[in-house]
Write a protein that binds this DNA or RNA. Structure first.
Lengths: 250, 250
DNA sequence: CGACTGTTTGAAGACGATCAACCCCTGTGG
DNA sequence: CCACAGGGGTTGATCGTCTTCAAACAGTCG
């Protein structure tokens, strides 16, 4: 199990030297195609990218109602997107790991529909959306990538729909989190959940107490080992079986 | 209130003669920009559109797992999109009225992620997606429209997230339904809900019995008059106040 | 008329929310 | 070094809403 004092995993992906296998090490993040772009395309993309940050925990990268000008690629840290209703209750739409693009849902309308808030210390790259849209007309691969990223966001948002138990929700969240981190070169067994329990609960439409109880059950069953916000998946297949009904939708 | 035998509203939008104010009367549906396209663009769009139908209740326009080749614009009737999990339980992602585009969520991946099923008798227009993507690189307005439509779908899917009561869910659904029909020239007070109660319940993550009870309460409060699948909104502001917390998310 | 589906209504039960208390860790100041 | 305050997290007891189960009802189509 986990000791209290040992550091379990590195805070950033393992350095591959000059090789860059993962898009998280590229300023474009998921804006990269699997096969990359031509040199010309890359040069043009580089012209319009802008490094921003760091943002400290709780600070806003953009704000709901603010003029939509750009999308952001997460370079480091975790970003959450949040909507607030008139009575101040907030709903966390999602968490975004390095490489992922934030702000695409603002393309409809000329204002951001949600807040983007730093969960921990965050670095981002800013892409002017008008510029990227114009560029995508010239670079079919880029247009295709944008279409795919937006369609993926539709699918992600739709996956939340459905009547699922607390266990299913949390397990699916954890499995999905592991997979996304694994794509970036992190361990898929030992992961960090940098956001507070209440944020996880909010995102899953559960009470913080319920999340706590679910975690307890999973620990008691030997599925997880948990030390504060660090999680080790001990029985991946068991976790997957909990998440199955939510993830395996044909 | 409603009599049993009278026909409350026309089955299709009022004919304006030669004027075509609404996109539902145009084969392109929401693929139309507010200001329309140039003649050249229209001609090219016309080349790749394909009329399909009619589909009878319960028949599939496309099927989950099928090769993704095209998106569909609803011309007449209502289409529902459905995902089925491994145990046969199904989840209705959404209902689509005339003018709306179905299948954009398939752009990610090369297979449809859901079934599209006719709720009543449905006519659609088929657009080859590769063709439309290619065309959109030449027509900036079309690209922009596609981006916006996809972003809107993200927003629609995200709106479902949150912890809402049965009343809030149903009221928000009904208000949204009215607004979408109103955009198409239908009455915004007297509407038809052509899908069975069970489908509404499924979409809202409620039991059919719960939907039935919510409707009963709204009738008793004088907010609605209901005759089978025809609904008249008697107190729009009351209905909106129920839906407020779900719709008014800044 | 009778089988069928879809809808409504009632009663009992389950799951998660809420309320309340406690714990653990951190940081701060004496 | 210890005391204390504070936030985040955990645990237990109770409550409420929606689900489930069961039955009756309505409209439709053969």
């Amino acid at each position: 199990m986990l000791g209290q004092t040992e550091t379990l995993w590195p805070a950033s992906p393992v350095d591959d030297g000059d090789q860059q296998h993962f898009c998280s090490t590229c300023v474009f993040g998921n804006l990269c195609m699997p096969n990359g772009y031509s040199k010309d395309a890359l040069r043009e993309l580089h012209c319009l990218v802008e490094h921003v940050g760091p943002f400290r925990t709780g600070t806003e990268i953009f704000r709901s109602g603010g003029e939509f000008t750009a999308v952001y690629s997460v370079r480091a840290g975790v970003v959450k997107t949040v909507v607030r209703d008139d009575r101040g209750r907030e709903q966390i739409l999602g968490f975004h790991t390095p490489g992922e693009l934030v702000g695409l849902n603002a393309v409809y309308g000329d204002r951001y529909p949600c807040n983007a808030v730093a969960v921990d210390t965050v670095m981002v790259c800013r892409f002017s959306f008008p510029a990227i849209a114009t560029l995508s007309a010239k670079i079919p691969d880029l247009q295709h990538t944008l279409f795919k990223l937006m369609a993926k966001d539709i699918g992600t948002a739709q996956m939340g729909k459905g009547d699922f138990s607390a266990e299913e929700r949390f397990a699916a969240f954890l499995v999905n989190w592991c997979e996304r981190l694994a794509e970036r070169g992190y361990s898929d067994r030992r992961i960090s959940l940098p956001m507070p329990r209440g944020d996880i609960a909010n995102h899953l439409n559960l009470a913080p107490e319920t999340v706590s109880r679910v975690i307890r059950r999973l620990i008691d069953e030997g599925v997880l080992a948990v030390d504060r916000r660090d999680v080790e998946v001990l029985n991946k297949s068991a976790l997957r079986s909990y998440a199955a009904s939510l993830l395996q939708r044909a």
